[in-house]
Amino acid sequence: MKASLERLTERANDEDLLDVAYTTSDSPFGPLLLAATPRGLVKLGLPGHDPETVLEDLASRISPRVLEAPARLEQTRRELDLYFEGKLTEFALPLDWQLSRDFRRRALREIDRIPYGKTRSYTEIARGAGNERAVRAAGTACGANPIPIVVPCHRVLRSGGALGGYGGGLPMKEALLKLEGIL
């Protein structure tokens, strides 16, 4: 049965019937859920977020053609492994931004430009996204980041240097900042 299912996933991929491919990947923080469209990585589910709920959400927002297909996420998994080992400072994998719109997407694109080992304030992100006064909205954009770690919202701090918040919990944000030599 396993071989039949693998063949099916392969054929679905070849015939453009696989709209969202997903897999889980181990990390120092627990299992991550990785999901990609043909355009690129669209969602990274942090530990503590129920994978079933995440997949249901993707099914309704992108396409119900959601299949477990680890092969489509090999590069993502490899880059993440290297990142957690401290051997990769810039992700090269393609991203699909379709889950974020308007100001949020601009804010996340801004966050995506923060270099490894550097931080920005929520105010700077708001300014970069075109509205300096939308600091709170910049914070919301961070909280709603569909692709954390790869789009490094952990590098965004409060203006005074306080940590702010993190979808994966503050200990994880702290650990990522330590990994990058910021803390």
Binding site: M1, S4, L5, L8, V20, Y22, L55, E56, L58, A59, S60, P64, R65, V66, L67, E68
Partner: peptide
């Protein structure tokens, strides 16, 4: 009802379909 991820259909019914 919302359509569940297609993988759910495989997980739950592939064995029956094959049978």
């Amino acid at each position: 009802t919302a359509l569940p991820p297609f993988q759910t259909l495989l997980d739950e019914h592939a064995g029956d379909v094959m049978g």
